[in-house]
Design a protein around this nucleic acid. Structure first.
Lengths: 293, 293
DNA sequence: ATTCATCCGTGCATTATTGCACGAGTTGTT
DNA sequence: AACAACTCGTGCAATAATGCACGGATGAAT
C-alpha cells in the first residue's frame, strides 16, 4: 500500500514516455518502475499506459490524472522546502550550482575558505550544463547569469555583466575577414560581428565558455566573451580589443527559492558568496581588462 | 525513499496526536509509524513532533506543512476518484453505505437481487454509525437522509421523509402524561411532544432508530419515528397515532461523488437502487401507515 | 504504594520490495 | 541479413520494510 508514492512513479513514466528513463530519473531499477505501474493499474482496474514499441503512451485515464499528479509534485516540493526552511543548524548539505568556469576560475578558492569557516556544512556542487530546478530542490543556492529571475526566486544582483571582444593578438592578425568563434545556437553571423567585422566568417562554434576561451587562446579566431573569464587570467595572451560593447542587461545573481530565505545555512552561504562576489564586482563589470594595443 | 507516502504518515499522526491511533487509521503496526516519522525527521533534519506523555504534539515545523499535507490528501483522493471513474467494467467492488435499519428492513432482499443481476460486482456494505466520507472514497454510493446534500455529491431525492408518532397501544394507555422516548441528543422535551403531550416525561433516550422501535414495541413509551421503519413491519402491534405531522424537509437521497457519475458499476448500482426505492416511495412518504383506532 | 492502562521504542523473525541478470521483441544501421 | 541499440517483462537472490512481542515510562485510579 504505497499509495501516494505510486503517483511519483506514474508521473515519471508519463513524462518520459518509457520505463527505462523514468527509472533513471527516479534512481531505481527499471523493473521496479515496471512492476509498480502494473500494480497501480491492477489496483485501480484501469489501464494507464499503452505499451507501444518505443515505450509507454498515456491513455485517456492517465491524461485525466496527469495534471493532478503535477500539482501533487509541486505540493510535495513545497513540503520539502518548508521542512528545509525550518532547519536552523549550520550543518548538513547545501546544494550549490553555478557555471563550471565560474567555479574553476573565480570561486573555488573562496569555497575552500567557506569550508574552513563552516566545517559542518557539506557543499554539493553542480556545475554541469543545464539549469537546476530550485523549486524541486535540485539546488539550494545558484549563481546565475540572468536578466530577470523568476518571482519565486530571491537574490542579489551583484553586477551587470560586461562583454568584450577578445583575441590572441600574438597569433591572430586582425583584419576585415577575421575568423569568428560563435555559440552553437547562433545560425548567422552574430550581431557584434556584423557591426565590427561585417566581412568576417564564423570558423568555429562552441557550446561552452571555457572552450571558447581555449579556441581564442589558440588563435583560431576572435570571440565575444563575458569579461570575467579572460580578465581573471592575467598572464594570458588573450587580449580585449578596444571595441566598445554595450553593457549587458544580464546580471550576476545569487539566487535561492523564496521558501529557503530563512534557512540558516542557506543564508550563511548566500551572505558569504555575496561578500566574495561583491569584492570582485569590477571583474564582472569588465573593469580589469587587459586591452590589446 | 518513500518520499510522498511519508506525508500520509505525518498527516495521520498530526491528526490523531499519537502514533498508536495513527497506526490504526493507516492499518499498520504502530512501530511502522514510529519508525517512519523518525526517518522523516531524520531525513529533513527537522523535529516534527514533540514527544509528550500523552503522545505526539506538532512542532511549528509540522504546523508549517500541515495545511499542505491536507491539500495533498485531497488531491490524492481526487486521483483515486478519477481513476475509479475510468473503470468501465461491471465488475469489482462497490462500497455502499446506508443506515443499518434501512438495509435490514427495506433493502437487503433487493441487494440479493442485485447480486444475482450483477454477479461480478462485490458489494461492500457499511451500515455502522458515522458518515462515510465519499470524497475520501470511504464509500462509493450512499443512501442518506438529508435536506441539502453538499455540492460535490450528486444524487436523486427519492421522496421527502414523513414522520409519525408511534405507540404500542396494546401495552400502553395514552393519556396526558404518556412516557416519551427521545433521541440522545435532545436535552428537553422534543417539540412534537410539547405540542401534543405537554405534560409528558422523557423516560428513555436512544441513539438508534431500531432501538427506538424496539422500545416503543415493548410499550415503554411513544416516539416520533420516520414512518418507513414501523410501517414496513405490518404485523407489528406498533401503530401510528392519528396525529398530523408536518412533512420533513429531509429527503431520502441516493448519493455519489460527482467524479464517479460516469463510473459504469456505480451508475448501474445507483439506477438499480433508484428503481427499487422509487417503487417504495409511498413507504417513505408515510402512505402505508397502520393507524391506531 | 500498587495496580492498571496507555503511551512509545527496539530486537528479531517474517514478509515484501528491489536489483540483477537474462531473454524476447522491435527499430535502425551497416 | 546480421548486428547493435533500444525497448520491456520475469525468475531469483539480496535487501529493505514490516509485524510481533517485549520492556520501560508516565499518569490515573484504587
Amino acid at each position: 500500500m504505497n499509495d501516494w508514492d505510486d503517483i511519483r512513479y506514474f508521473l515519471a513514466v508519463a513524462r518520459s514516455g518509457n520505463v527505462t528513463s523514468a527509472a533513471k530519473a527516479l534512481m531505481v531499477n527499471h523493473s521496479t518502475v515496471s512492476r509498480r505501474i502494473h500494480a497501480l493499474e491492477e489496483k485501480h482496474g484501469v489501464r494507464l499506459f499503452e505499451r507501444i514499441p518505443s515505450g509507454y503512451k498515456m491513455t485517456v485515464a492517465a491524461l485525466d490524472i496527469y495534471e493532478i499528479a503535477i500539482e501533487l509534485e509541486n505540493k510535495n516540493q513545497q513540503v520539502s522546502r518548508q521542512l528545509f526552511a525550518q532547519d536552523s543548524r549550520l550543518q548538513g548539505d547545501i546544494h550549490l550550482t553555478m557555471p563550471h568556469d565560474l567555479l574553476a576560475f573565480c570561486l573555488i578558492d573562496e569555497l575552500a575558505l567557506f569550508r574552513q569557516q563552516q566545517p559542518d556544512i557539506r557543499l554539493k556542487l553542480s556545475v554541469s550544463k543545464g539549469l537546476r530546478d530550485l523549486a524541486a530542490r535540485e539546488a539550494d543556492v545558484a549563481i546565475r547569469f540572468s536578466s530577470t529571475p523568476p518571482d519565486y526566486l530571491i537574490g542579489q544582483n551583484i553586477s551587470l555583466l560586461q562583454h568584450g571582444i577578445y583575441a590572441n593578438t600574438d597569433k591572430l592578425r586582425l583584419d576585415k575577414s577575421v575568423p569568428i568563434i560563435s555559440w552553437s545556437g547562433e545560425n548567422s553571423l552574430p550581431g557584434w560581428a556584423q557591426t565590427h567585422f561585417p566581412k568576417a566568417q564564423v570558423v568555429m562554434q562552441v557550446d561552452d565558455l571555457l572552450a571558447m576561451y581555449a579556441a581564442v587562446k589558440a588563435g583560431i579566431g576572435v570571440a565575444r566573451m563575458p569579461c570575467y573569464l579572460p580578465d581573471v587570467l592575467t598572464e594570458s595572451p588573450v587580449k580585449r580589443l578596444p571595441i566598445e560593447m554595450p553593457r549587458s542587461t544580464w546580471g550576476v545573481w545569487i539566487l535561492s527559492h523564496v521558501d529557503l530565505r530563512h534557512t540558516a545555512r542557506v543564508r550563511c552561504c548566500r551572505e558569504f558568496l555575496q561578500e566574495k562576489l561583491t569584492q570582485r564586482k569590477g571583474l564582472f563589470a569588465g573593469e580589469h581588462s587587459n586591452y590589446a594595443d
